[in-house]
Write a protein that binds this DNA or RNA. Sequence first.
DNA 1: ATTTTATATCGCAATATTACGATTGCCTGG
DNA 2: CCAGGCAATCGTAATATTGCGATATAAAAT
Lengths: 109, 109
Amino acid sequence: MGLTKTEIFTDEQNQLATLLKAMAHPARIAILQRILISNTCICGDLVGELGLAQATISQHLKELKNAGIIQGTIEGVSICYCINPKTWKLLEKQLGGFLAEYKGETSCC
Amino acid sequence: MGLTKTEIFTDEQNQLATLLKAMAHPARIAILQRILISNTCICGDLVGELGLAQATISQHLKELKNAGIIQGTIEGVSICYCINPKTWKLLEKQLGGFLAEYKGETSCC
DNA sequence: ATTTTATATCGCAATATTACGATTGCCTGG
DNA sequence: CCAGGCAATCGTAATATTGCGATATAAAAT
């Protein structure tokens, strides 16, 4: 055991879980926030700004890229990362719908 | 190594990461959706509805509870789980603010 | 008091994640 | 072509997650 039983769930559930998982780390949230602020892409600046090793940052970037949340393009010497608009919109839609499903606190338990 | 360096990040980043992590599993998304639909709480019904063992469901519920996303009260024989309004509102706020920070696709890379 | 029913917890095995040093690959400038 | 820096990858250690059977706990029914 030790691996998620994806066959049991819907594609939507698996997809949302994958996206959330990709963001569910403080370093990756910090990376995304940096990208959101300086809209324009960043890269090795992160190594200096966050207190993590280059290999670690690269790994986090890879995970965000694998999930489709960011995309990277070669920009001369360094590499430029930025938000993938398509996935971001999908995320807004899926997550928005999910959160909105909660109808106030109609006295449950 | 192998453990997240939380000291490096802000409380907000760590908190959001914890909440996202708690939701970042298809089974837990499915559980939350069930709760959102039948607003009123559920419990061992999940064992029949999702295809997972009782011990596994119980563990997922525990994780959601630890994160503060759901709360449980004893309801006679069984236990009634429902959304924790406080955390849900926090999540909406944090996540909403986060997602909204993206200013369209102003030609990045 | 004993059985039934509903959950939680323990213990384990398989796998995934996190972090980093070391190395490799790759472009650019000399 | 070769040296420079930037970023990806490899390998490894420590720890976390996922899933389940088995067992424990606790309230309700008999």
